[in-house]
Amino acid sequence: MTEERSGEEQSIEMELGEAAVIKLPRSTSLERAGGGLLVSLRPYYEGVIHFTLFLCASISVLVTVGIVVVLLYESIQFFFDVSIIEFLTGTRWTPLLKPQHFGILPLMCGTMLVAGGSAIVAVPIGLGTAIYLSEYASPRFRDIVKPMLEILAGIPSVVYGYLAVVFVSPIIRYVFPSAGVFNAASACIVVGIMILPMIISLSEDILQSVPLSLRGAAFALGANKFEVTVRVVVPAALSGIIASFLLAISRAIGETMAVTLAAGATPKLTLNPLESIQTMTAYIVQVSQGDTPAGTVEYRTIFAVGLTLFLTTMTMNVIAQYILSRVGERYE
């Protein structure tokens, strides 16, 4: 039985083998000889794929344009009711209370207070960490810290917000009893921690991109590690480091959740971080979730504030990108 079978199988294999051997060249020769149709659906597939991908790409462009148009349209409507001069120079912001005042300076001041305060927290720590990671740390330590930074960057901003209220704020009130429950300082601290990973990873990349040969040259001139770092590596990377600060601060300006929770809702023209303030983003949250009727001046304020916010962060991002793009040119 087994022998017969194996014989059969063999013969089948033989046939198949022969068939394959004979058929293969035949089919290819047919194609080569032009036996196949020149017309196929392939060009259409290519076209469809091309168009689909184009559509994907244009969505982001269209959305951007759409947002800007809506912001501009509603803001222009707003400026029919409120003069642009009052908007930019007024020192009181009370659109939801009578008498109404539409001066954006208190909101602007709140935003800048939080942005500046968080920069004061994040810039020294961030730069110090970046220098340490790039110049001093062992590769093993760097391998531990870098994923930690990723985790820090992944913590939702609302978590930072309530940490500010339940943890940071009580500490501030313990040290400065005059501070309110909601105060700018706690917002500054948590937003500073939020933007820390961004400063560290961007600055560290830029420090790493300073050529090793430059460090070697400085060492060969008798510099010690600290002198090499401070006099050669950091100055060589300075423009990139500044750009990373700008990007981080622009993030702090746009930060919403943490400041809404931590900084309070009192538009105030003050630089005292212990007081409750309101930022532009927090105001937009307040109006958006409230019961302000759509179409009214009060409602349109959020578009004017949004536009102001958009222009501020965009300017900073553009400056930062411009500086960053020039860093690359220097070392080819």
């Binding site: 040969s213 400085a218 060492f219 001139l221 060589a236």
Partner: peptide, 25 residues
């Protein structure tokens, strides 16, 4: 390293002024 100076294969000027480069040491 102050007594034994070194010039590298690739010239490595620091991104500073000419004066600051020479006066670095």
């Amino acid at each position: 390293r102050k007594r034994i100076g070194m010039v590298f294969q690739k010239s490595t000027p620091f991104p500073k002024s000419i004066f600051d480069n020479v006066s670095f040491g």
